[in-house]
Simulated assay, not measured.
Amino acid sequence: MKLVKKNIQSTARAVLLAESEAIRQAVGAIDEQFEQIVETILQSSGRVVVTGIGKSAIIGQKIVATLNSTGTPALFMHAADAIHGDLGMIQTHDVVICLSKSGNTPEIKVLVPLLKRTGIPLIALVSQTNSYLAVQADFVLKASAETEADPLNLVPTTSTTVALALGDALAVSLLNARGFTSQDFARFHPGGSLGKKLYLKVSDIYPHHEIPTVALRATMQEVILEMTSKRLGATAVADENGDLAGIITDGDLRRMLNRFNTLQLEQLCARDIMTPSPLCIHPDEYATHALKIMQDRSITQLIVAVDNRIKGFVHLHDLLKEGLV
């Protein structure tokens, strides 16, 4: 096959414009019936069962994934498999959403009467509102797509995009109505950097480190050995009661070398070069808060403390390792 490169960019732009215009027109589908669909799902004590065939089935699976991750229990049932036993997954208090562009495919015509027999609410996500599916459904969510984006008007492109967008609109509307929070989202997304940003706390990180600590009157040799052995680029300074008095970082050591000569260095102790009342973070704070402090103050470590008692350190490298940066 000879590759035709002519007008590639214009073709791609035309597809995007056609699909974006179809989504814009789909705003008209958001009406009182859309509110009734949301209320029906909210009042249901069961799951949302999404079904379809062909490309609609693929879009349906994505809608199910979005519903599940935003607090609405959902599952996918392929329309062809439904009539061969999968109807058994539907329970009394479920709600069914059936996706179909035409609403007249043979599999849908066989499935719809079986769904109606269960007595559960049937929502049609369909382009043709005079179709068999739309007429039989309890609620109709119109996914208008007058033409597809391909020149032959055959490939499901515009129609599937509109159906997907309406599925997102439904999921987010349910999310808002349920008062779904970022912490709820984190419970369903514990993996990856996104989940970690929502649930990872300082207490999950700092126990992995040793706790570099020196006394107020520790010598410079003791300070350097402590910082070197614990490999965090800093050490806490504790007073006679073990409370946090200050912090000494690599930067403090460099500044010390610039300010004092060799004889003076031998007379210095930790108290002379430490930064008093250093920034601290509580173990129960989220790791993203620790990251923000570090970024705002251009520092690479924070002391973890509770009531001025030193618990440990959290380092920027820890947050990099966790994928938060």
Rank of each mutant, 00 (worst) to 15 (best):
residue 212 P to F: 13
residue 254 R to S: 10
residue 270 A to Y: 04
residue 234 A to D: 00
residue 275 T to E: 06
residue 311 K to C: 11
residue 189 H to G: 10
residue 298 S to V: 06
residue 260 F to P: 05
residue 260 F to Q: 06
residue 290 A to G: 08
residue 263 L to S: 09
residue 252 D to G: 06
residue 251 G to N: 08
residue 282 H to F: 12
residue 196 K to C: 02
residue 303 I to H: 05
residue 213 T to I: 12
residue 243 D to V: 05
residue 247 I to F: 10
residue 279 L to H: 05
residue 305 A to W: 02
residue 299 I to R: 05
residue 292 K to G: 10
residue 194 L to G: 14
residue 250 D to Q: 04
residue 291 L to R: 09
residue 254 R to F: 10
residue 310 I to R: 00
residue 269 C to N: 13
residue 230 K to Y: 04
residue 240 E to W: 01
residue 229 S to P: 05
residue 299 I to H: 02
residue 277 S to F: 14
residue 249 T to G: 07
residue 207 P to D: 03
residue 226 E to F: 02
residue 217 R to Q: 14
residue 203 S to M: 07
residue 298 S to L: 05
residue 229 S to A: 13
residue 218 A to L: 00
residue 192 G to W: 10
residue 311 K to E: 13
residue 230 K to H: 11
residue 291 L to S: 10
residue 256 M to W: 01
residue 217 R to C: 06
residue 278 P to Q: 00
residue 207 P to M: 12
residue 193 S to A: 15
residue 310 I to M: 03
residue 276 P to G: 07
residue 253 L to Y: 15
residue 305 A to L: 10
residue 283 P to W: 02
residue 237 V to K: 01
residue 233 G to M: 09
residue 202 V to T: 05
residue 275 T to R: 02
residue 308 N to L: 07
residue 192 G to M: 08
residue 285 E to Q: 14
residue 282 H to W: 13
